[in-house]
Design a binder for these strands. Structure first.
Length: 616
DNA sequence: CTGGTGAGC
DNA sequence: GGCTCACCAG
């Protein structure tokens, strides 16, 4: 039974020797590879920086981003004046009289486009975070372009994890070409240990968190450190590129796993990065506040901290695994591991959104159906434009359900949902029809004069890319058949009789003009392949270097007027959209060891579908 | 399908 | 505090 006591071990994880297999075998590229190199990156005071750049302000102007009377972001120049997020705007202005206060964009009474206005009124306006989502996508596009080989996980609107392992190994082999082949006389072939690692020049890697008693003492350099250094150099280049192209500064952490990368990205801010080597992990974690660790900032973390009277990670290290699991469940092994710097969770390629919420705290309270309908219209209008926008980047994107939530006073909010049938004619009105139905159900129990809502929210959930076949026939006819009929007619046999031809459902390409954002997003992809494009010209057409598809002008009449170029661009956009959605090189697909709360062991489906299948 | 938790700006 | 997002339990 003794072998069950420790954390799980695998061949790849054996001891502390790095072998040629770790470096060269694709099969060894799992979460257990000791050379694994993960970065976490977040934009410094994101919303405030977005606004400062949008306004074209100099970098040293103190600015806060406001939402009604509260502050949601404080840029670093403003922080010098002691301004915090929880200050009121008046307090902030007292601390810094020349502070630039910028309110977030808003929709004015249900207008179809959000904008920046001189005056904003919470009674008539609805906050829009769309401008920030767009910036977020631009940044992700740069990550994707500069880190084409590793997975990228969008963690929030301004944070991402990057698996730098493949790129770091490439660079390592570039610097040490002799590692690329196993020596003839290596005793164990691929499983032979690498030669001793030479000293490292960390000068381009940013901050390196010091290990215990390291000052001047002899320190053993490892190949794991080399991988981190290569990753850190890559990350520094990525950050530099974000700065050059978008003028945003960001902070990053580079470590062997996600949890540590996330923690050390916050070590030096702003505009800085920190490397956390294995040998420095315990020194780094020991004095850290236990509840600063991701997923331990809430009730669970509090419960554990209280149980063991622990403040720092160091305080928790004496708690035996068995005891922890006895009190907090089998799953709490991830806590045991993470305070030791161990985290085997994967960087899951995900940049597509799974839900869209438009929420409004209404002032004054909504007391009549008429007031409710007004706000429903505003919320539906926002969802309409957001889904439209998302579909330009992710064609075929469609929500499974529409959800209405509402809250009365301090009661917990209630929600109701309804399937959201596909239509080719998405409109605010279409969304509203379903939203109203939910509203009627939800407000049914409220007696006249009893209604007093202070929050109303509308959300799309189960956002997925529909393939043509999945776009139900009943959905296709939605605009022609009464809505009541749609809800009843779910089965194919109920579809209108005598519709022999499969309807031509919306194609992947809308053929619409590109927005500046799309053009921007497409740029990286097309320029990257442009040299290849030149190399294989096809008379009267173009062969995609990525998939081999032959693109010819669909309309001969328009052929001379740039139609081919447009279709080529569209095709490349499509590839880009696919790559953004995580269709890159497949994941490593190794099993998980419960390193995260409730992590499930899942078998990965094959191919591109894998990224769109609902979790089962 | 509904509610709750956790995180972040 | 307002507005998001993801994930999970029952």
């Amino acid at each position: 039974m003794a072998f069950l006591a420790g954390p799980p071990r695998r061949l790849e994880d054996s001891g502390n020797t790095v072998t040629y297999r770790h470096l060269l075998s694709p099969q060894a590229m799992t979460v257990f590879n000791p050379l694994r190199t993960i970065a976490h990156c977040d934009i410094d005071a994101a919303y405030a920086q977005f606004e400062s750049v949008r306004l074209g302000l100099p970098d040293d102007i103190p600015l806060i981003c406001a939402q009604w009377q509260s502050i949601i972001a404080v840029n670093y120049p403003a922080r010098k004046y002691g301004i915090k997020r929880f200050n009121t705007i008046d307090e902030a202005k007292k601390l810094c009289p020349h502070l630039y206060v910028q309110h977030v964009a808003t929709y004015r009474n249900g207008e179809s486009e959000a904008g920046y206005w001189g005056e904003v009124d919470p009674q008539t306006h609805k906050v829009s975070l769309d401008p920030y989502r767009r910036e977020s996508l631009k940044i992700l596009a740069i990550f994707k372009e500069l880190v084409p080989k590793g997975e990228i996980e969008k963690a929030s609107i301004d944070e991402a994890f990057l698996d730098l392992t493949p790129m770091a190994i490439d660079r390592l082999l570039l610097v040490h070409p002799y590692l690329a082949s196993v020596p003839e006389d290596a005793p164990d072939g691929l499983d032979s240990a690498l030669p001793p690692a030479p000293p490292i020049d960390w000068s381009k890697a940013g901050n390196v968190f010091p290990a215990d008693g390291e000052e001047g003492a002899r320190e053993v350099t490892t190949w794991e450190d080399w991988a981190l250094c290569m990753g850190a150099e890559i990350m520094a280049e990525v950050r530099e590129e974000v700065w050059k192209r978008l003028h945003y500064t960001c902070s990053a952490g580079i470590a062997h796993n996600k949890a540590m990368a996330k923690l050390c990205s916050a070590w030096k801010k702003p505009n800085n990065q920190t490397v956390l080597r294995m040998s420095a992990t315990s020194a780094f974690l020991r004095d850290m506040d236990f509840t600063d660790i991701r997923f331990l900032g809430g009730k669970l973390g509090q419960a554990i901290a209280t149980e063991y009277n622990a403040q720092t990670v160091g305080d928790m290290l004496t708690v035996p695994l068995e005891e922890l699991q006895a009190k907090f469940g089998e799953e709490s092994i991830w806590v045991y591991n993470i305070i030791r710097g161990i985290d085997h969770t994967e960087v899951t390629a995900r940049v597509a959104t799974k839900s869209m919420l438009a929420s409004k705290n209404v002032r004054p309270n909504v007391k009549t159906p008429e007031q409710g309908h007004h706000w429903l219209g505003v919320l539906a209008g926002e969802l309409n434009v957001r889904l439209r926008d998302a579909r330009e980047i992710s064609p075929g994107l469609w929500p499974k359900t529409l959800v209405l939530s509402h809250r009365t006073g301090i009661e917990p909010s209630r929600s109701r949902q309804i399937p959201f049938p596909f239509t080719r004619n998405l409109s605010t009105e279409y969304i509203l029809k379903f939203a109203r139905r939910l509203w009627d159900e939800a407000t049914q129990p409220m007696n006249k004069g009893n209604m007093k809502l202070n929050n109303i929210a509308l959300a799309f959930t189960g956002l997925e890319k529909l393939e043509e076949g999945q776009q139900g026939i009943e959905g296709f006819f939605a605009s022609k058949v009464s809505l009541d009929a749609i809800n009843i007619k779910r089965s194919r046999s109920n579809s209108p009789a005598g519709s022999p031809k499969k309807p031509r459902l919306p194609t992947l390409h809308t053929g619409k003009r590109k927005t500046p954002l799309e053009a921007f997003l497409a740029k990286g992809e097309s320029s990257a392949s442009s040299s290849t494009v030149q190399a294989n010209p096809v008379p009267n057409g173009w062969t995609c270097p990525k998939c081999g598809a032959l693109i010819t002008p669909s309309d001969p009449v328009e052929a001379r007027s740039g139609s081919l170029a447009a279709e080529k661009q569209e095709h490349e956009d499509w590839h880009f959209a696919m790559s953004l959605q995580g269709g890159g090189t497949g994941g490593s697909g190794s099993g998980e060891q419960g390193a995260r709360p409730k992590a499930k062991v899942k078998k990965k489906p094959q191919g591109i579908k894998a990224f769109f299948t609902p979790k089962g």
